[in-house]
């Protein structure tokens, strides 16, 4: 059996959460994120629940599976419902492995929103991770309510008119114990948040901005740099919300202009050279976030941040 070094341990390929042979495009954010989730869980394997999205194609075709964990493919809107059943039975049988929903933005912001809202309101014991590529990747690149204003998709051919939905505010409104945003360009912060989510009970919501060269019309080798730019420019803030009411910002923007982020992705071609709408979005977003942090800061009891 081929083995490879992962941290200090020798791990067989078949023991990875994301195994070689998966179908992810080159430069896909899922490839980084799934490996980091695996590393943060330190060998513990979750049960995965994945709705219709690129993430289920990742597994490859039956009978092979690129996931080194038991995985259920849910209908598009149902992953938190299936996860509710799975985690209920796990609890009744005193099984402790985490149940993780792994879903795209379409399954999260759009078709699955009612199901997620209900599972969050019941505070079901699961980690819900949305890898947000801001587009319907699986069906060839249509708009979602996570698609930012200005972005060209196959259903917004002259650039989307509406702003991206604030899913974090929606989840905070459910008073779930833990919600956080994660970047595939910030490994330490990412790993810490996965561990934090793992150590928390109840409904945990994690949002990853997930680069998608195929949908973003960007170069695969630019993926992590693009996410780094999104964080530095303030477009994708890294923060945590505890119990839906206490906020903590993990990284503030360093003033990087948004122009290069736009120029390196042809999905922004309709607004090329005109960053004003994204700039206005960033400004409003930080106005809201700074206000929340000021009014409702995290406390010492919220632990390491």
């Amino acid at each position: 059996m081929t083995t490879t070094a992962q941290g200090n341990q020798e791990t067989a390929y078949c023991d990875y959460l994301l195994r070689p042979g998966n179908t992810n495009c080159a430069g896909c954010g899922m490839s980084i994120a799934l490996q980091w989730v695996d590393q943060a869980l330190e060998g513990e394997k979750p049960t995965l629940v994945i709705p219709a999205c690129c993430g289920i194609v990742t597994a490859g075709a039956f009978p092979t599976s690129a996931y080194g964990a038991p995985t259920a493919a849910a209908t598009f809107a149902s992953s938190p419902a299936l996860a509710t059943g799975i985690s209920t039975i796990a609890a009744l049988n005193e099984e402790t492995q985490p149940v993780i929903c792994w879903a795209g933005d379409g399954g999260t912001y759009d078709i699955g929103l009612a199901t997620i809202s209900a599972a969050a309101e019941r505070n079901e014991n699961m980690i819900y991770i949305c890898y947000d590529n801001e587009i319907y990747g699986n069906t060839g690149g249509q708009r979602s309510s996570a698609t930012p204003a200005g972005v060209v998709t196959s259903t917004t051919t002259s650039g989307k008119g509406e702003r991206k939905k604030d899913i974090m505010a929606i989840m905070a409104g459910h008073h779930i114990p833990y919600a956080a945003t994660l970047s595939v360009a910030h490994r330490d912060d990412f790993i810490r948040k996965i561990k934090r989510a793992r150590a928390t009970k109840g409904f945990r919501f994690l949002l990853i901005l997930s680069p998608c060269p195929t949908g973003w019309k960007s170069e695969p080798e630019d993926s992590t740099e693009l996410i780094s730019m999104a964080v530095r420019s303030g477009l994708f803030p890294l923060y945590e919300i505890f119990d839906g009411v206490r906020y903590c910002i993990n990284k503030r923007p360093d003033g990087l202009a948004i122009d290069e982020y736009i120029n390196r992705q042809r999905r922004y071609r309709a607004v090329a050279g005109d960053p004003t709408s994204l700039q206005a979005f960033i400004k409003d977003q930080w106005h809201h976030l700074e206000g929340m942090v000021k009014a409702f800061p995290a406390t010492d009891e919220d632990g390491d941040r």
């Binding site: 629940v49 259920a72 849910a74 209908t75 809107a77 149902s78 938190p80 419902a81 299936l82 996860a83 509710t84 059943g85 799975i86 985690s87 209920t88 039975i89 796990a90 009744l92 009612a114 199901t115 809202s117 209900a118 019941r122």
Partner: peptide, 25 residues
Amino acid sequence: KGRVVPVESEHSAMGVCIGASLAGA
């Protein structure tokens, strides 16, 4: 050793049943 989950829709009612049954219940 059981639980009846008050869900938000029939789509999810069957979803919960699917999850529980996939978990062997």
